[in-house]
Amino acid sequence: MRRHRVSTRAWHWLNVVAVFTLLMSGMTIFNAHPRLYWGQYGANPDQPWLHIYATRGGEGVLRVGSVEVETTGVLGVWEKDGRTQTRAFPHWMTLPSHYSLSSGRKYHFLGAWLLVIAGVLYLLWSLANRHVWRDLLPSRKEIAPRHLWHDIKDHARLRLPRGEAAARYNPLQKLAYLSVLFVILPVIVLTGLGMSPMMNASWGWILDLFGGRQSARSVHFIAAFLLVAFIVLHLLMVVIAGPVNEIRSMITGRFRLPPEKGDTP
């Protein structure tokens, strides 16, 4: 059977490129000042709520609020080609793989334009062809607490829909996609713009919405972290649901329905 329109498939793979470019170059930019603050201002003399650093003793530390976690080898202190480095995120997570703030920013804006242009086109298209209403918005029945709880239990037991039901998005899946599409991505774009001094002058409402530039920077980072969590869950679900069939359906649009229990394949 056919699943996923061309617009959905094209947007999906464009996003793979844009989002990975953004996440990795974003970590390069974070490495320039690995502290996050709340409020309008925040710099080295001020108190960050999140800080990744190296101790004098050569240990990597992640501090969130008053909780400190030793992260030597991964965050704060790590090795590249046998040499110890003391940047926050390690080379294999960042773009470029060596530290260059200007290159990181360049790639970040390239990814940002790709994400925003493709995202706006996809959104308009999905509203026009009613993809949002037909496939993404859950019905009232689907978001009834009992129904949702049932769906959560099914996910926890890795009991995924089979037969015809597998061709449609299930309620938890719909909620996950909707929150990425209408909450996380818009928040990421707005907080990104909220860090631009030029945009701040004309669109001061973004500063008011998030409570200042440093708060916007913090929310930008948290939203990116949530996006990573979504991607991890998403990939996990693809693997559990049958990676070959799922990936093929996102490339060619052809999807083989998993047979109902008891049917012979």
Binding site: M195, P197, R213
Partner: peptide, 12 residues
Amino acid sequence: TRHDCVEGWSAI
């Protein structure tokens, strides 16, 4: 006014 460094920090 607020001074925004390219590195990410701000000071007023």
